[in-house]
């Protein structure tokens, strides 16, 4: 099984430790993982701002980079969903479709593809899980509160294998953090209020860490926590699942 590791641009640039944790975590499962160095971005920031027509070259680059892998794994629900829903190049339709079907967000890959049963990880802290919207409602990593349907959660299932962790419960268990890509800039007031409210929910339930499958949401929450000089930290789920010390 040949796995291509897709590290979203902001993780590459701002949160390299998340990429490292993802890579190590996958390799610990005995998987053959390659990081193709020519990758850039899925194009979501442009497309979500109405500039999908600018993503043509980044799409081409994505296809060129990842077409030959059996699976593509990405530590971001949002970027994975974007590729799944929007990867399109006119003269490479078949390749694009293949990629759309073989790209997985990290926790769904661990749960659904390799069927992970146990982890040698330990993280003795109180942790709040932020359900990132695109992973939740787009990829169905967990059951959303809007539907009348049986509950499940792939991230929680994996976190439950970690020794010592205590998952807190939240008042609003899957409300958006307000990041929304360029929304965080163009709708600053609402974005910040949403972020502050999300943070408050975690703090009210004594979280020591806030985790999630999307570093972009966590970056937003981190910006707010740090402005409040809060000791609470954000941490990507890969870092917790890979925490073996």
């Amino acid at each position: 099984m040949n796995i291509g590791l897709f590290i979203p641009c902001y993780i590459d640039q701002l949160y390299p430790q998340v990429g490292i944790a993802t890579l190590e975590l996958l390799e610990k499962q005995g998987l053959n993982v390659t990081y193709p160095a020519n990758q850039t971005c899925c194009g979501q920031p442009m497309a979500n701002s109405g500039f999908e027509h600018y993503t043509h070259t980044s799409n081409k680059n994505f296809i060129r980079t990842f077409a030959d892998f059996d699976y593509i794994v990405c530590p971001s629900g949002s970027c994975t969903l974007h590729v799944k829903e929007h990867l399109y190049v006119a003269n490479r339709k078949a390749q694009a479709t293949q990629i759309r079907n073989k790209i997985y967000e990290l926790t769904e890959f661990l749960t659904d593809v390799i069927n992970l049963k146990a982890l040698n990880a330990s993280f003795p802290y109180k942790v709040g899980l932020h359900q990132s919207c695109h992973g939740l409602r787009g990829l169905h990593l967990a059951q959303m509160s809007e539907l009348v349907a049986a509950p499940f959660s792939k991230p929680e299932h994996l976190l439950s294998m970690v020794k010592g962790i205590e998952l807190i419960s939240l008042d609003r268990h899957d409300e958006c953090c307000g990041f929304g890509g360029t929304f965080s800039i163009f709708e600053e007031a609402v974005s910040v209020k949403m972020g502050q409210d999300r943070v408050a929910d975690h703090l009210n339930h004594q979280a020591e860490y806030i985790t999630g499958v999307d570093m972009s949401c966590l970056m937003h929450l981190q910006g707010i926590l740090n402005r409040q000089k809060s000791p609470v930290k954000v941490i990507h789920i890969a870092e917790i699942l890979n925490a073996d010390k």
């Binding site: 390299p16 160095a37 970056m219």
Partner: peptide
Amino acid sequence: TWYKQREMPPAPKQSFNSWYK
């Protein structure tokens, strides 16, 4: 606009890409 009410994200010395290399 980001900085008005939020701190900037961290700026690590090395990207994942160069760490990998």
